[in-house]
Amino acid sequence: MKLTLKIWRQKNANTKGRFETYQAEASPDMSFLEMLDVLNEDLISQKQEPVAFEHDCREGICGTCNMVINGEPHGPMQGTTTCQLHMRHFNDGDTIVIEPFRASAFPVIKDLAIDRDSFDRIIQAGGYVSINTGQAQDGNAIPIEKETAAEAFDAASCIGCGACVAACPNASAMLFVSAKVSHLAHMPQGKVEAKRRAQAMVNQMDEEGFGRCSNITACEAECPKEISVEHIARLNREYLSSSVGSQVKA
């Protein structure tokens, strides 16, 4: 199949970017990234700079790959990362527009590669259970309802790719933050410091310059792991109760 690609090229964070148009050949069994690999091989053979894009596991789990394809983070297939998107979902002759995730808290490094350190700093602010190695009791000491564990898992399946931010017209990171807050608040081990965690992570999120959630739910619609905005409600609950409650100090 023949494709026209309009790809955002930007030398680095300080230069202006623009769209470049390329013609590409693909087979329907290729993944989207393999299609870009072929384009890059082609560019290299013409001694041109390949398109910089980040990727790693190519199994949809590491969260490295990003890019907005035809206006949607990770492209048109729901519940699918870019690396798992296959060309059979496109048609011969299609024009595909490829852009980086756009948000102030995700500055562009080069072309489609972006910097997502802000997510790490949010986790560092409190996205953990405060125990040291060796302090654990037996794994079966606290029974956990099967459904509760499953719900916690749903939230914990977040891959930290940032598609929620990219999809959100407000560039809000609420789905990411809420997934971690909700995962840990579901588990008895994480419940203990749930309030403090919600406060700390939201504060950090605000400091990083993410936008305010207005419940547009584009994040859920575009999340490659289909994480629900129910978790955002849970975060709101934890945050509200910790703000007006007495556990977290004034």
């Binding site: 259970v129 125990i131 302090q135 654990a136 029974p143 956990i144 564990a149 914990a156």
Partner: peptide, 22 residues
């Protein structure tokens, strides 16, 4: 054996039976 205990204590959502055990 300690690894499982440690991971559970970190909040890792392992699969559970209806009785709530791993």
């Amino acid at each position: 054996r300690n690894i499982i205990d440690q991971a559970v204590a970190q909040g890792v959502p392992f699969a559970r039976e209806y009785g709530g055990l791993l």
